[in-house]
Amino acid sequence: MKIIFTTAAIAALSCTGALAGEVAPTEVKFEDGAIAASLSGKPGDPAAGREIVSSKSLGNCVACHAATDLADVPFHGEIGPPLDGAGDRWSEAELRGIVANAKMMFDGTMMPSFYKTEGFIRPGKAYTGKAADDTFAPLLSAQQIEDVVAYLVTLKE
C-alpha cells in the first residue's frame, strides 16, 4: 500500500511541475555554451516564442536579426546572423544557451544575456535611469526562453 501511495504522490507532484521546477538564472548549467535541460521544466510554445522574438517590448530579436518568417514585422536588423535556418544550424540545447546568455558560447558577442541577473558592471532599473534594486530580474523569464527556443527550432532552411 505504501508503494502505491508513494507512486501516486510522485506522479501528482510531477504533473504540477513541483519536481521539474524552474531553474534560477544563477543556477543555470552551461556545457560548451549549451543548456541541455529546460529552464522552466515545461515545453516551449513556438507561437508565443514568435511573439517574443518579434516584439519590441520583449525579446526585440528583430532589432539585430532578420527572419523571413517575420516579414510582417518592420525594421529587421543586420547586426546578428539571420534567424532563417537557426533550427538547422544549432541544436535545441545550443539555442537555449545562446538565448539565455550568448556570451557563454560566443566570446565578445554583442547579443544581450536574456537570462542573467548578476555579473553586470552597472545594471539599471529598466528605462528609469536609476540603479537596479532588489526587483532586478532577467530580461526574459525561463518560460519565455523556452518559448523562443521552441520557435527558433522551427526555423529550418
Rank of each mutant, 00 (worst) to 15 (best):
A24P: 02
A8H: 12
N60S: 07
I3E: 15
I10T: 06
T68M: 02
A100I: 04
E146Q: 10
E27S: 11
E118F: 09
L155Y: 02
A8M: 08
M1I: 15
F120I: 08
H65D: 02
T154W: 03
G44M: 05
C64M: 00
E157T: 13
E31K: 13
P123S: 07
V23F: 09
T68Y: 02
H65R: 04
A67C: 06
L70T: 01
S54F: 05
L95H: 01
G129W: 00
A34G: 02
I4G: 11
I79N: 13
D69Q: 14
K56H: 15
K56D: 14
D32P: 14
A12V: 04
K116V: 07
T16L: 14
V28E: 09
F5N: 15
G97Y: 08
A20I: 07
C61A: 03
I145T: 05
G97E: 00
L70I: 05
G17P: 05
V28Q: 05
A66I: 07
E78S: 11
A102N: 01
E157V: 12
L95I: 07
F114D: 06
A66R: 04
M1K: 09
M1A: 15
T109Y: 06
I145L: 02
A18P: 10
V148N: 00
P112A: 10
A18M: 14
H65I: 01
P82K: 09
L95E: 06
D88L: 05
Y115I: 07
N60F: 05
A34Y: 03
A18G: 10
A63C: 07
Y115H: 10
D134W: 10
L152H: 04
M110R: 12
S57R: 12
M110H: 11
G85R: 03
L152R: 04
G129H: 00
P82H: 01
A102R: 07
F136R: 03
K42T: 00
H76S: 11
A71Q: 09
V99M: 05
T26H: 09
F5D: 12
I121H: 15
I3N: 12
Y151C: 00
A137P: 14
V73P: 13
K156A: 06
S57T: 13
V53Y: 04
K103R: 15
A131F: 07
T117K: 01
L39R: 01
F114M: 08
F5R: 11
P74G: 00
D69H: 14
Y151A: 01
Q144V: 08
S54D: 08
G17Y: 08
L140R: 00
E51A: 11
E22M: 04
P138A: 03
L155K: 04
P43E: 05
A126V: 13
I52H: 06
S14M: 13
C61M: 11
C64N: 00
D69E: 14
G49M: 03
I121P: 13
G97N: 01
H76E: 11
A67V: 13
D72S: 08
